[in-house]
Design a binder for these strands. Structure first.
Length: 237
DNA sequence: GCGACAG
DNA sequence: ATCTTGTCGC
């Protein structure tokens, strides 16, 4: 698929906040989207090997056919990671490999699911929101742990599957703590761009199986990413 | 200065 | 994210 060239993939650190604030103004989280409207959804994730100045990243994108929930295409990218992890700036660390992998896809997925947040971010620009501009497609963020921003807090959702609570800042609801499976820790869902919160929540719940609290596409990408690393390490005599 | 901190 | 064995529980 063709990826949009929104800005340099490795901008100077001083430009990070400016870029995020500029793109944040263009986010649209008012659009309802149902699973039935989507023919394909893609899960994106990365794994890492090494540390410090010799880090290697492994990105994998798994595209699912929503009618059969079978993987219909995969694409990956491996490369050096120069940017260290910094809360609030995850995008700049992972975007280069995501863009490279997406560019190899023949299919243009109708929506992307990310391991991380969407607008549940200090400047409303988590990785799902940011990447959506490059991908030109709706995106949803599903984080495994809570990213507390400003004075945000959330109440623990009920223990039954499908239960959720809102994560709100002032009068604005940025995301939800969602119990995707009974009795397990909740995941944190937030729309990235091109989709509203209700739709994002429904989508994640619909795409979550009994094997994991994560949605199937993200879990598949997560597993694949470690397989990539395993095979890469095997070739590194 | 201290604590918090998506992946 | 990653480093890691056994172990508590359904």
């Amino acid at each position: 698929m063709q990826v949009n060239d929104i800005h340099p993939l490795r901008p100077d650190t001083e430009e990070f906040i400016h870029i995020q604030e500029r793109l944040a103004k263009q986010i649209d989280v008012s659009r309802p989207l149902r699973l039935e409207d989507l023919r394909t959804v893609a899960g994106v994730d990365l794994a890492y090997a090494g540390e410090g100045d010799s880090e290697t990243g492994f990105c994998h994108i798994a595209v699912f056919d929503t009618a059969t929930m079978r993987v219909m295409e995969r694409a990956g990218a491996v490369g050096e990671i120069d940017m260290p992890y910094n809360p609030g700036f995850l995008t700049f660390r992972e975007l280069p490999l995501i863009v490279e992998a997406a560019g190899k896809l023949e299919t243009v997925p109708d929506l992307f699911l990310f391991d991380g947040n969407g607008i549940l971010h200090p400047r409303r620009m988590g990785i799902a929101s940011h990447a959506s501009f490059f991908l030109g497609k709706p995106a949803v963020g599903v984080a495994k742990t809570y990213f507390r921003i400003a004075e945000t807090e959330y109440k623990e959702p009920g223990w039954e599957k499908g239960s959720y609570t809102d994560i709100t800042v002032g009068r604005e609801t940025l995301g939800r703590a969602v119990r995707t499976s009974a009795g397990v820790k909740p995941v944190f869902v937030s729309p990235g761009n091109g989709i509203d919160l209700d739709s994002a929540t429904d989508l994640v719940l619909s795409l979550t199986g009994p094997e994991s609290r994560l949605s199937i596409p993200v879990r598949e990408a997560d597993i694949s990413t470690r397989r990539m690393r395993r095979e890469w390490e095997k070739e590194q005599k």
